[in-house]
Design a protein around this nucleic acid. Structure first.
Lengths: 205, 205
DNA sequence: GTCTATAGAGCGATAGAC
DNA sequence: GTCTATCGCTCTATAGAC
């Protein structure tokens, strides 16, 4: 393993983004440093600045990548879940919980960076892609766009809370795994989605 | 306003803890620095180390203080809520959401620091005080300790998620306030507590 | 108990060699 | 496009004067 001498990369930019995502998964967004990402990629501390003008720019790229990955996964599980709208919603919420628990970041990374990093169209697009996937899961449950947004807010807040609290070690005594987080999130979503579906505005009978 | 010359304090220790709490409310736990806390209290950078041996120790003191404040507030709202167990639970959950949204930290600060900072009995006690308040609110709903823990996990995860997502700016477009976060958390708690109460193991009819 | 001063470390970002 | 080297900053923690 050569040490920092004449090292060559096929695609350092992508390597840096991937490495940053890993690092966030290990230590959280706040403590992510460009220097550490560079070290992980076996390049010098200055190298990343040929690809990203600032730490913020790197973070934006990471958020964009995360958004695409998340949107893909949500769409994946959504098509695979049966015809029951509530069960489908639960599956999508569970997938978000798993993603956030595994990556140590979710909506907070994807949407909050969007706010501070001004004028990045790529990230905004990626965020919209995620939002589309959410609406596609929630709309069949509520039948109404406004209600769907409310349901999304409730269920994904719960999933996010579960994932982050689990990450911060809260359930460590109960030996809970990421699978437990996922299934708990699904259970909450089932209850919340079920309770909103009860009025059933779309049934004809 | 004299600048760092012969400054005297009645109780610097308490001032530091209070200042640290404020700072966490503004910028989050991760970026809390002893240096900044000292600056806020108008003392030198070394002064805090006469009261706390390390940043970790300061953080532990802050978490302990936060736990006591939270436990007090939860007990307060709990006694004031009517006889309906579900409504009482919703009120307590809402109070937690408000606390976390306002302070930028909740269970994550109180219980996670407890894990890393080894052997601090004061913080552990404070944590137990909080947990007692939660159980006292949840037990009348479920009638069963195990089910109460489950309900606590679900409702407070949701409240925590709402508060932290709100904090990260997610609902900024909807012009939502901390009051909205509070009432949304209450609504979720009502639904979740109501759905677990349905079997009603304690009714006699 | 608070001050000044400082050691030692990590980070963001830039400059110039290759 | 990557390297080496460096500036300037902030932070944690300690030492010694008062």
């Amino acid at each position: 393993m050569a040490k920092r001498a004449g090292y060559h990369h096929g695609d350092l930019k992508a390597t840096l983004v991937a490495g940053a995502l890993e690092l966030i998964a290990e230590r959280g967004v706040a403590s992510l440093s460009v220097a550490e990402v560079a070290r992980r990629a076996h390049v010098s501390g200055g190298a990343p600045y040929r690809h990203f003008p600032s730490r913020q720019a790197l973070l934006t790229a990471v958020a964009t990548k995360a958004a695409h990955t998340l949107a893909d996964r949500l769409r994946e599980v959504s098509t695979g879940a049966g015809p029951d709208p509530v069960e489908n919603m639960a599956t999508v919420v569970a997938a978000y919980a798993r993603f956030t628990a595994e990556h140590g970041a979710g909506f907070d990374l994807i949407f909050a960076v969007e706010l501070s990093g001004r004028g990045n169209e790529e990230l905004a697009d990626a965020g919209r892609t995620v939002m589309d996937a959410l609406l596609q899961a929630a709309l069949p449950v509520t039948g109404d766009a406004k209600a769907a947004l409310g349901l999304i807010g409730r269920t994904f807040a719960a999933a996010h809370g579960y994932a982050t609290l689990w990450r911060s070690g809260l359930y460590i005594n109960r030996n809970s795994t990421v699978d437990d987080v996922t299934s708990e999130a699904a259970a909450i979503a089932r209850t919340l989605a079920g309770s909103v579906q009860t009025p059933l505005p779309r049934t004809r009978s």
